[in-house]
């Protein structure tokens, strides 16, 4: 399991930082509380970007590598934010032979992000999925809970436009 590092610029708020610093202050007396603080940070920010891990390392007085090593060990910790709309493209065999790979490439190009990444505005994130069991509708993509079947590359703009908030 290799964790993907987000390239989205960090845009934490003052309030978030204050909440994290409060959690650090509460726990810094005991370095073994590192994970407790990291769990709080994940709650506050939704993920653990560089800047957040650096604050934790500094506050808990542990090397940053220690924080990063822990963050990449546990499944619960994430290094990249999830978008409000997560697009998942089925790359199972049936969808793949029907061109879901092309859809995936096109989405990466349109959104300007790679797999397991999120757009800078936090709106879309992109993941690949194993077979979702809708092979008859291949190729299939999902936006959050909405399933789109027999999608062509040309329809992508239309689908993305539906999520306009």
């Amino acid at each position: 399991m290799k964790k993907k590092i987000s390239k989205i610029p960090f845009n934490g708020t003052k309030e978030q930082e204050a909440a994290l610093q409060a959690a650090i202050a509460e726990n810094k007396h005991d370095k073994s509380n590192l994970m407790v603080v990291m769990q709080k940070a994940q709650d506050i920010y939704g993920y653990l970007p560089f800047e957040v891990q650096e604050m934790i390392a500094e506050g808990m007085d542990v090397p940053l590598e220690k924080v990063y090593g822990v963050a990449t060990f546990y499944a619960q910790f994430s290094l990249s934010p999830k978008g409000r709309y997560n697009i998942s493209v089925c790359l199972g065999t049936a969808c793949y032979v029907k061109g879901s790979g092309l859809l995936f490439d096109k989405l990466q190009e349109k959104l300007g992000i790679g797999a397991d990444e999120c757009t800078p505005d936090g709106k879309f994130s992109l993941t690949s999925a194993r077979c979702v069991g809708a092979c008859g509708l291949a190729p299939v993509l999902m936006v959050n809970e909405d399933v789109y079947g027999k999608v062509t590359v040309d329809e992508i703009d239309g689908i993305l436009a539906k999520y306009n908030d």
């Binding site: 994970m35 407790v36 990291m38 499944a75």
Partner: peptide, 13 residues
């Protein structure tokens, strides 16, 4: 006899 408990949460491993 004194005894107290702390709760620790796993993180998915």
């Amino acid at each position: 006899f004194d005894f107290d408990l702390t709760l620790r949460l796993g993180a998915g491993a």
